[in-house]
Every structure is written in C-alpha cells, then in structure tokens.
Amino acid sequence: MNPRPRPPARQPQHAPHAVVAESELLRRRVLRALERRERYRYVRPEVQASDDGWVVTSPCCSRNVDPDGGVIDIALLQRSAGGWTLSRRDHASASWVRHSKGVRLDTLLDVLCEDPQRVFWP
C-alpha cells in the first residue's frame, strides 16, 4: 500500500507581514526625525520606499527648484554594507549625489535635519 503523497510545505505566513512592519517602523522613524529639522519646519515631508532605498520628498517652499512650489526629492537613504548612505538630490542633473555614509541611521538623520549648507533643503 502506497502512502498518500504529502502536500508541499507551506511558507510561513508571518514573513511578509514582518517585512512590511519593519519597513513601516523605519518610515515612521525617519518621519519623527524630520520633525527636528532646521529648514522649512512648516511643511510636511513624506518618506516613501523605493527600489533604491527611502526617498524623502517635500513641497519646494523656497521656489528655488520648483517655482510652482511642487513636491521635490530631498534625500535618499540606503542601507549599505556596514551601515547607511545618505544622498542629496542634484536637481540640475536629476541625479542622486552621495553625501554621507555612517554606521548609525540616527547620525545621518541628524545631518539631514541640520543641513547648514542647504544641500538637502534648497
């Protein structure tokens, strides 16, 4: 008598939810840090996951980049080997330019929020 074939093993159902929850926690962590920023405190930036990492966008209050005050890219945060990378947007060439690398995300968020040379918040 042949035993009944076993059904294929199921993948754990909690794995995708764990990834989504981790991503949402990271997004909220970045948003909380952005509340401490020095520039344009009266606008509400957004943080979106992308294929490259996390993109911070904000309305262009200075009108330097977008005369109509539209939403522009501010920064890109990426996980890298051994830490994080922070890039700024070069709006003239429509490309990301690496600005800083660090082991701790909080250190790079401080750089983004302080921005004394206005390289992130033009």
Rank of each mutant, 00 (worst) to 15 (best):
D73W: 01
P116S: 10
V19W: 00
P116K: 07
Q117N: 05
E46L: 11
V30C: 09
E46H: 03
A94Y: 13
Q78K: 13
G53V: 07
Q48F: 08
Y42L: 15
L25G: 15
L112T: 04
G83L: 02
G82A: 10
S50A: 13
D90V: 11
R79Q: 10
I72D: 04
S80R: 15
L25A: 15
L26E: 08
A33E: 09
Y40G: 04
Q117I: 00
S62Q: 05
D66V: 08
S62K: 05
L25W: 07
H99G: 03
W121T: 06
I74E: 02
W121K: 04
R44Y: 07
E114A: 13
G70D: 10
A94M: 13
Q11N: 04
L112G: 02
A75W: 02
L31A: 04
D51T: 06
L31S: 02
Q117F: 04
V65W: 06
P59D: 10
D73E: 14
R98N: 04
S58I: 05
A18K: 04
R32P: 00
R44A: 12
H99W: 10
R88I: 05
E114Y: 14
R29V: 03
Y40E: 14
P12M: 01
L77V: 09
D66H: 10
L109D: 01
G70P: 10
C60R: 00
R89H: 14
R4N: 08
P59T: 11
C113W: 00
L105W: 02
L86T: 05
S23Q: 12
G53M: 06
A75P: 06
W121H: 04
W54H: 05
E114C: 12
Q11A: 10
S23K: 08
R63V: 01
D90R: 15
E38H: 13
S93H: 14
R36G: 05
A18D: 01
V56M: 07
L105Y: 02
G69Y: 05
P59Y: 10
A75H: 03
Y42D: 15
P8G: 03
D115F: 03
S93E: 14
H91G: 05
Y40T: 07
S50G: 09
R104D: 07
L112M: 07
I72V: 15
L109F: 06
P59I: 07
L76H: 03
D90F: 13
R4A: 11
T57M: 08
R29G: 07
Y40P: 01
V56D: 04
S58R: 04
D90T: 13
V30A: 11
E22A: 15
Y40F: 15
C61W: 01
S58G: 09
D110H: 03
R28A: 13
R88N: 03
P59F: 05
A49Y: 03
V103R: 11
A9L: 06
P8Y: 04
T57Y: 03
L26Q: 08
D68H: 11
V20S: 03
M1S: 09
V19H: 00
A94H: 14
C61Q: 10
S87H: 10
V71I: 15
V103L: 07
D115R: 05
